[in-house]
Simulated scan of single mutants.
Amino acid sequence: MTQQTHDPADGIGSLTQDLGPTGRPHREFPEPKPLRSHGPARIIALCNQKGGVGKTTTTINLGATLAEYGRRVLAIDFDPQGALSAGLGVQTHDVPTIYDLLLSRSIDPNDAIQNTSVEGLDVIPGNIDLSAAEINLVNEVAREQILAGVLRRVSSDYDVILIDCQPSLGLLTVNALTAAHGVVIPLECEFFALRGVALLIETIDKVRDRLNPAITLDGILATMYDSRTLHSREVLERVVDAFGDDVLETVITRTVKFPDATVAATPITQFAPDHQASKSYRQLARELVFRGAVA
């Protein structure tokens, strides 16, 4: 088979004529080089106003794989459902949470950071208290920028900060977008999930115009892909047609291993390190480093 290849060490990656799910030549992204120093962090919001598209799963497993590659990662549980905290097995009650940090500058963000079972991956937990944040913050001055102020106080200790957003476009999500340097949009390969992407990108554009001129779209990540169904293939084809190179080449397939790993409160890269899903998240981490979204 004819191939066009490059040495992965040259930073270009390896291209072949085999086509991946996105219809582009399959590329093996090079393994990231070790960092000589850490910080300041690049902040990435994982955002989609539709629930159940893989935001939390991606935050957990992307964070774990970046930590595997020697990056210092802080994950922020910015969803009142607290699924990120549960998925990483951290305490969410009787401890400082992101909600407390939003409401009080007197609390040191470092006091809210908890270690996880993955070396190099820390988390600031969240719980149901966060559902009251929008009401409590509505009269605050510069209320859209409160999270940015919190993260500035810990940014120098990490290489990347991942924000797991709630499934809405309310004040909390606007806070996340205002704090972020980039956005990754997990998109379930299903028609109704596709419909909301244009609205989300419109919201990102408004935040860029009014609050955060530096924010960029780091990529749209296809999740829950099932190559056996025509529907999944058609949705992914439409996404690539509409958004082109903004669609990440890595695709996350549907598997029962994800809920199993959630029950075990551990990333899938530890729960089933040799599973295809683990390999896909390592590919995602390498792709984001390759694209410059992560150091």
Rank of each mutant, 00 (worst) to 15 (best):
Q4D: 10
Y69D: 13
I220C: 05
S168N: 15
A64N: 11
T229C: 11
I163P: 00
G23C: 06
E140S: 11
S156W: 03
T203D: 03
D111T: 13
E140G: 01
V239A: 14
T56W: 05
L84S: 07
Y158M: 08
A179G: 10
D205F: 00
L19C: 08
T223D: 07
L74Q: 02
A176S: 12
G51E: 04
P21V: 09
D159Q: 06
K206D: 14
R143W: 09
R210G: 01
I124V: 14
L230N: 15
D260P: 00
L84D: 07
F191H: 11
H93A: 12
Q91Y: 00
E140P: 00
V240N: 11
V183S: 09
I12D: 10
T229H: 13
S155A: 13
N136R: 09
T255E: 07
V95M: 09
R42A: 12
T203S: 13
E68S: 12
R210F: 12
A75P: 01
T57N: 11
V141C: 00
T58R: 05
S155H: 02
I60R: 04
P25I: 08
V235D: 11
A222M: 14
T5S: 12
I113W: 03
S156L: 06
E28S: 13
T116M: 13
T16S: 15
P8S: 07
G23T: 03
V294F: 01
L84Q: 08
G182H: 00
V160C: 11
E234S: 14
K206Q: 15
K279V: 12
L130Q: 05
T57I: 03
L137V: 02
E144W: 07
D129N: 12
T223C: 11
E287M: 06
V256S: 14
L217Q: 05
L84C: 11
D111H: 07
D226T: 06
I161Y: 03
A293T: 01
T203P: 00
A242D: 12
P25Q: 09
G120K: 02
L102A: 10
L62R: 03
A293D: 05
R233V: 12
P30T: 03
V197T: 13
A83T: 14
E234A: 14
A193R: 06
V240H: 10
T57E: 10
C189E: 10
L74V: 01
L171D: 05
F191M: 11
G170I: 02
L62V: 04
S232Y: 04
D77N: 04
